[in-house]
Simulated assay, not measured.
Amino acid sequence: MTQQPKVLIFDSGVGGLSVYKEIAACLPQLDYYYLFDNAAYPYGELERQTLLERVNKLVSAMVEKHQIDLVVIACNTASTIVLPSLRELLTIPVVGVVPAIKPASVLASKAVGLIATPATVKREYTHELIRNFSQNKTVEMLGSTRLVDIAEEKLRGQAVSLEEMAQLLAPLANKIDVAVLGCTHFPLIKEEIQTVLGSQVMLVDSGEAIARRVKDLLALNESNETSGGREIYSSAPPWQEDALNQSLTELGFSPVRHFHLEI
């Protein structure tokens, strides 16, 4: 049996698991490694240079240790900053995520809502995407760190308050017909966002596009083969580790292991 490619998925938290789910649904036979830099979570509050150094060191160390074949930076904040330097450092493909402004603008008849982190909303890269692909549509932007925390809490079995969600999403109420989930954490709370915004609002994220990109870069076909390995690492002991491991088991991962690296 030929050895399957190894894919590393990287994020500051567990949000990138939404991207993992899309890729693994398409290519279950691959060996997946997931690394989250929770020691520096949330990334939106880090200085640019600090973020660059952390991601470059952590990712390149994991690539070397596990002989990774492809890296997915499953974090909008990190993708907009580290992709050029990481691609210079590594000899393997590096895939990033960007808010799905382009497809959303094609689908919207009224206006687009961008739900993201405050850092993504402020970043020039995001404004450039809007200028390039959404000239004829209004884009309402909403930056929220609390929504990221809610997704982290949900994965640890905590109930999501729809009342709190409604307050957080109130600035978009009745203004948009397509919403971009501009943070990889947000597909984890997609049902709740849909309930609050209403069925008339279409939700768009980058997960499927990333899965297609990975499949093309590795030149693989979809497969019914048995699942490959699933390992997950964190840069610091995760909070509510037992509850998190319970959810990770359901996704096919072994319990979280600590990946220590002096940064």
Rank of each mutant, 00 (worst) to 15 (best):
V112G: 04
R257F: 01
Q3W: 03
R230Y: 06
V180W: 03
E208A: 14
H127E: 13
R146I: 09
T117Y: 12
L90Q: 03
A179K: 05
H127F: 11
P237L: 08
G228V: 07
G96K: 01
N174H: 15
G96P: 01
H127P: 11
K21N: 13
E192A: 11
S235C: 08
P28N: 06
Q29G: 02
E191C: 02
P118Q: 14
F36H: 14
R230F: 07
K57Q: 13
F133N: 13
L169P: 00
K175M: 01
L86Y: 02
Y32D: 05
D11S: 04
E47A: 14
L248Q: 07
L147E: 03
K110T: 15
Y33I: 14
R87A: 03
G252C: 12
I9F: 03
G96T: 01
S18Y: 01
S227R: 08
I210F: 05
D177Q: 09
N224S: 11
V63E: 13
P118A: 14
I92A: 04
I189P: 11
S199T: 10
K102P: 10
S85N: 03
A24C: 06
Q240K: 15
L89H: 05
H260V: 13
P103K: 05
H127I: 07
R54M: 04
E163P: 00
K122P: 10
L181Q: 09
F253M: 05
Q4P: 06
R87T: 04
A39H: 11
F36L: 04
G44V: 09
V148Y: 08
L188W: 13
G44R: 10
N245P: 09
M141L: 15
L107W: 05
W239I: 12
F259M: 12
G252F: 05
A211T: 09
E45Q: 15
A173G: 00
S234R: 05
T2S: 11
S206M: 05
I210S: 00
L172G: 02
L261N: 03
S227H: 12
Q194A: 15
L8F: 07
R230W: 03
L35Y: 13
E222I: 14
S109E: 12
S234D: 04
L155K: 11
V7I: 15
A236S: 15
L70R: 02
T126I: 10
A100L: 07
V106E: 08
T138V: 05
V204H: 03
Q167K: 08
L107T: 00
G15Q: 02
I232F: 07
D177W: 01
N132S: 15
L251D: 10
A173D: 04
C26H: 08
N132F: 10
E208G: 05
L30V: 07
V7M: 09
V55R: 00
T117E: 13
P187N: 12
E231L: 12
I193P: 08
